[in-house]
């Protein structure tokens, strides 16, 4: 059960957006940077875009959940902990250990990955607008959890070596929880999360199998 109404939730998001304005512009630009690095065919290291995604999880965990959303819902503290953990995992795997590289391969995983990235940056807010969130409460990547989770799925699919599974666990949980909340308070944009998570996980697993097969 959700302890707040749709109107109160949208009001809270609008307040948060207003508080952070114009950080949304920077967040969208950083989203485009991630997209650029992801589709650029290069084999260099991908620490910078990984860092951007990690900082997004950290910002959502601390700013959105712990400092803002926890006034309405005690469970926001759990989400905050999960988002901060994901940020740390991304930094450990992708920045410190340089565990994966982004590369557009022109296969189904890369195509869906790019589509999810683009949708997280532009489609999510537009869908929000079309389904009644209003401009003040637009969900923006790097600021709000939904598009940040979606961006991460796209990003994980664009890793040349299969993304470490540990990085998919929290985005999977976050996608399910986000969609359940969206369903309960009538925010249809969030319903894109579970299909993206299921497709993402399936494609990552398939890539891992292929990769292991090729290594034999």
């Amino acid at each position: 059960m959700i302890p707040f109404s749709r109107d109160v939730f949208l009001d809270l998001v609008a307040q948060y957006n207003a508080l952070l304005w114009p950080a949304q512009i920077a967040a969208l630009l950083l989203g485009l940077v991630v997209l650029y690095f992801s589709i650029r065919t290069h084999d260099g290291n991908s620490r910078f875009p990984v860092l951007i995604v990690a900082v997004s999880w950290l910002a959502v965990g601390i700013g959105y959940f712990a400092l803002h959303f926890s006034t309405l819902n005690w469970a926001a503290w759990l989400s905050a902990a999960l988002f901060v953990t994901q940020a740390l995992l991304l930094v450990w795997t992708g920045v410190i250990r340089s565990g994966f590289r982004l590369h557009y391969d022109n296969d189904i995983a890369s195509q869906i990955g790019v589509a999810l990235l683009a949708f997280a940056i532009a489609g999510y807010p537009l869908l929000g607008l079309a389904t009644g969130t209003g401009t003040a409460a637009l969900p923006i990547v790097g600021i709000d959890p939904g598009p940040t989770v979606l961006l991460t799925w796209g990003f994980l699919l664009l890793s040349t070596t299969p993304a470490p599974l540990v990085l998919a666990v929290i985005p999977f949980i976050a996608a399910c929880v986000g969609a359940a909340a969206g369903w309960l308070i009538d925010l249809p944009a969030d319903l894109v999360l579970p299909p993206a998570a299921v497709a993402g996980l399936w494609l990552i697993l398939a890539k891992r199998r292929r990769y292991r097969g090729a290594a034999k």
């Binding site: 959700i2 302890p3 707040f4 109404s5 109160v8 009001d11 307040q15 006034t71």
Partner: peptide
């Protein structure tokens, strides 16, 4: 429950 959970928003 729900009805009074409006956070810190002064208008609400």
């Amino acid at each position: 429950w729900i009805t009074m959970n409006v956070g810190n928003d002064p208008a609400l």
